[in-house]
Write a protein that binds this DNA or RNA. Structure first.
Lengths: 343, 343
DNA sequence: CTGAAAGCGCTTACAG
DNA sequence: CTGAAAGCGCTTACAG
């Protein structure tokens, strides 16, 4: 591998001059530059990135971190991030942040191998870990975090949230308007801010209509399809079922749907289901899932803007909340000719 | 940010000694070491990774590269890679290889920011790009590439293939055994090795049974759901349909299913569909998709083994081909009480 | 057991 | 316009 010295030697100049030529710094005469560039080409020379970033103290790459890089979540967010980064000629790398301080993400951030990080679904990462990273002045955008944590704001942490409360309200209200009264809640991770707010929206919608909240149909799960599947199976075994279920995310809604369908329970005829997130799968499953949408692609772009605002130490919003919209499809029973059995 | 000098100064030793202590090199007395470690802790010192890798000439991270990081493909491959890498205490980062020499992946590889790369679905990357990378002695594992390219093997390129031919044969034979005779082929990217071999298997299966290959039902697409959807719509408009379709991958099979179902054509009653890959979605769609499975998780682990074999310059297999298995579900009509309409 | 020094491959302020 | 030199933050062969 040719390095800057090889080029300098062959061109008969100093390494400084090579560096200036390569980096287009207008100090070098046209002919010298041309010669250097030609020789660099011949030698297939590429500046060593590691050495450059050691010197420049930046990498021009942004990290996208999730707890499970294999999860089908947030595809559109990723796409938005990617497009925004390409425009700025920055690189995007994705890594795992599972297990906090032992994760690749943490090492990438700690070692400044990225100039900034976007952490999707950070609920299982203690805030002190987030802060420890931000200490290094590597800007971070996090989702699924309370906007009130911590008390004093940190210049290197921005929060990108979703209007969980109103999203949940709207979809549960829709269920109520269809006539459902016995509604279960399929819960995500207890520590998740998103989950907490969705639960609040759920309870608020019930309360406003004086509909009881049934603790027996509060099913505790963790946002995954598998756990939702088995927890729903357990519920089915009790023989005591609600008329509808609001799942705190689509993956769980789909897990529950399969559990019910496996047991011969028809959706939406015998049980309505709604979710949250509007993942790609939501429109593909049968029946298509009624859920809550937000503009993920835009979220991705906003996340990148937030990173660069912090990088440039511009004044900026520290917290942005995305609005939501209900997507009515089939799983809620809205399109049934004979309205839900409970009517 | 504390660096090695800060620690050395505060501990009253040289930076060499700090380095030895931190890296557990048994040259330092127990008490000196303890003191250094304590002070490093107090100062929250972390060795600078960039500097380390500049010196050590390795990064202990492996890159996983795909054309579309937002694609739901290969989730299990990713999981296999990740698990294998965790065992070896290596980091995994994912990046885009879209647009060859302009991609993040290429820069990561060129700059040796990763010690090795796994390229999934490399069919649209010219071989010279692959070789250019391999020149740098960064080992590469590629999929979806002809084993015969190039003539002489490269010590830093290994190929991980799938037995496309037999996989396609088996699923098309299954269609034939159910009585279908007019079978269409929904094609992936023409340049894709996987696609070529699947097409060969398809043709071979027909030929063996003296069943004609209908050029009019050869639908050219590109492995994506969207294109398959619109191409299938076009075919439907002609009013001249086959009895069954073999899609070169599951995403396209699903795209075609939706196009057909949207037009009121029942699957499998009026048209059978089979795919290839057995992605997660395949069992979730209705009807569940009959397809061809291979052990993706194992592929991921094998890919990592191949990387390390090259890294350690061990003797090893240059090409590994994964066996396949047919997964019979519902979309092929095998479970119909009244067998397909053509019988 | 400890340290001074070279070097990894660059960038850049400074001098000429 | 060009170059010598310092320095980014480490590791490691060598000397003591």
């Amino acid at each position: 591998m040719a390095n800057i010295k090889d080029v300098a030697k062959k061109a008969g100049v100093s390494i400084s001059t090579v560096s200036y030529a390569i980096n287009n710094i207008p100090k070098v005469s046209a002919e010298t530059k041309e010669k250097i560039l030609r020789i660099a080409g011949e030698l297939n020379y590429q500046p060593n990135f590691t050495a450059q970033s050691l010197k420049r103290q930046k990498t021009e790459t942004i990290g996208l971190f999730t707890t499970d890089i294999c999860s089908p979540y947030y595809l559109e967010v990723t796409r938005g991030i990617q497009d925004a980064l390409i425009e700025r000629k920055y690189d995007l790398i994705i890594a795992n942040i599972y297990q906090g301080l032992r994760s690749t993400a943490y090492r990438l951030l700690r070692d400044r191998r990225v100039d900034g990080g976007i952490i999707l679904g950070s609920s299982d990462i203690p805030y002190r870990v987030i802060e420890k990273i931000a200490q290094k002045k590597v800007p971070l955008v996090v989702t699924d975090r309370s906007p009130d944590e911590p008390k004093q704001e940190n210049k290197f942490i921005s929060k990108l949230l979703v209007d969980n409360f109103n999203g949940a309200m709207s979809v549960v209200n829709h269920l109520i308007s269809l006539g459902y009264r016995k509604i279960g809640y399929l819960s995500g991770l207890r520590e998740s801010y998103d989950n907490q707010k969705r639960l609040e929206g759920f309870r608020q919608a019930l309360q406003a209509k004086k509909i009881p909240f049934y603790a027996k149909w509060f099913i505790e799960a963790n946002f995954t399809e598998n756990t939702a599947y088995s927890k729903t199976k357990e519920m089915i075994k009790t023989g005591d079922l609600p008329e509808a279920i609001f799942a705190a995310n689509d993956e769980m809604a789909i897990g529950a749907m399969h559990a019910l369908q496996n047991e011969g329970i028809k959706i939406p005829e015998e049980m309505a289901i709604v979710g949250f997130d509007d993942i790609h799968l939501a429109k593909l499953v049968k029946p298509a899932l009624t859920t809550v949408w937000r503009d993920e692609y835009k979220m991705g772009r906003i996340a990148v803007d937030m990173i660069f605002d912090m990088l440039n130490e511009k004044d900026h919003k520290n917290v942005i909340t995305m609005p939501t919209r209900i997507m009515v499809r089939e799983s809620c029973g809205t399109k049934l000719k004979n309205k839900p059995n409970i009517l």
